[in-house]
Write a protein that binds this DNA or RNA. Sequence first.
DNA 1: GTCTATATGAAGATAGAC
DNA 2: GTCTATCTTCATATAGAC
Lengths: 205, 205
Amino acid sequence: MAEERTAPPRNPKAERIIRAALRVFLEQGFEGASMDRVAGLAGVSKATVYAHFDSKESLFAAIMERETRRRAQAIVPPMSIDLPIREALKRAGESFLRFVACEESVRTLRVVAAESARFPELGQLFFDSGPAVTWRALTEFFERAADAGQLDVPDPGLAAEQFMAAATGQSHLRRVLGLRPAMTEGEIRKRVDQAVDLICRAYQP
Amino acid sequence: MAEERTAPPRNPKAERIIRAALRVFLEQGFEGASMDRVAGLAGVSKATVYAHFDSKESLFAAIMERETRRRAQAIVPPMSIDLPIREALKRAGESFLRFVACEESVRTLRVVAAESARFPELGQLFFDSGPAVTWRALTEFFERAADAGQLDVPDPGLAAEQFMAAATGQSHLRRVLGLRPAMTEGEIRKRVDQAVDLICRAYQP
DNA sequence: GTCTATATGAAGATAGAC
DNA sequence: GTCTATCTTCATATAGAC
């Protein structure tokens, strides 16, 4: 799993290769993607692609790792103990759901899951840069809420998991299987509202 | 997407091809699998494989469809209104979780999700033969429980979804990403218990 | 139906010129 | 660094004999 060989920042060709490769891999998967197509889409020759990346494997690993880390910054769960419980949960839930329900997340999940045997570190990175971030923030939130006597939560980590799962529901699986279009903003809000109701009723003091 | 050309029931060669193809596709995915490997594992020549199936696509579709339908029979959610609420939910939840958490389901999900664009019907079949079965049974169960005044469930379909999602949690995603081994029987029981607690507390009359 | 042998094309990777 | 041209391997699919 070699890295990029050149300095990435300001090379326009390198940048084009990276963007093209991301698109091709997310559309076709690792095996389905071809280096010819990457080169064609980037507008460079295949040899140029190989001048920047040692192999198809290293290109894939570098691209996916870069993209996963980059997108992790999109989850900024604004968990504040200052807000009312329901409002704080609502914001975190919506931020999370917007993240996992977007087209890029769904495509990335499909590819990373399919290649989990060949690229094990990628699965870990995907999870750590996504759901794990929200889970940690929510767990701390439930701990504070329990300490403050606002909620009766014996296991904050469990409550965080249940909240995320309830918000996600079956819709995400159906989306990953290609059975439905992306969630609308209205649907996201509705699903999160329902999850907030569930958690608040179950864990009311 | 042609079907098998021969009568499937009692041909030992056909049976061997089907078993080999299932294994190869679930291990390598559609693109990663090769007809050579299928033939080799089945102990027949490649030409024999093509005598039974028109193409790699039709072999894949036939295999996956057959397997999905076959395994759907493993979910028999024994939902009885005679049992206490908690016990009925527990049984249905454990049956469902055993189904989705097993090795075959996880591998099938990875492959079907990855190929959802190329084989759209397969995603639908996977969902209909799996989660949808449990969801319908649970929804009816919650309807009856609400009618009987045993639970205060305004939206039975939502409650069913929340229960399934809570039982599944993040563990399933982590499993699909290759980050953890299969759930133990003890873990299944524990997770379902926690989901039952959540639902019963949230929807107590 | 089943085999061996092969046609055909695609894809990963590289050589060598500029 | 970048290109064109090419090497090599391997995969889908088929021809033709038994």
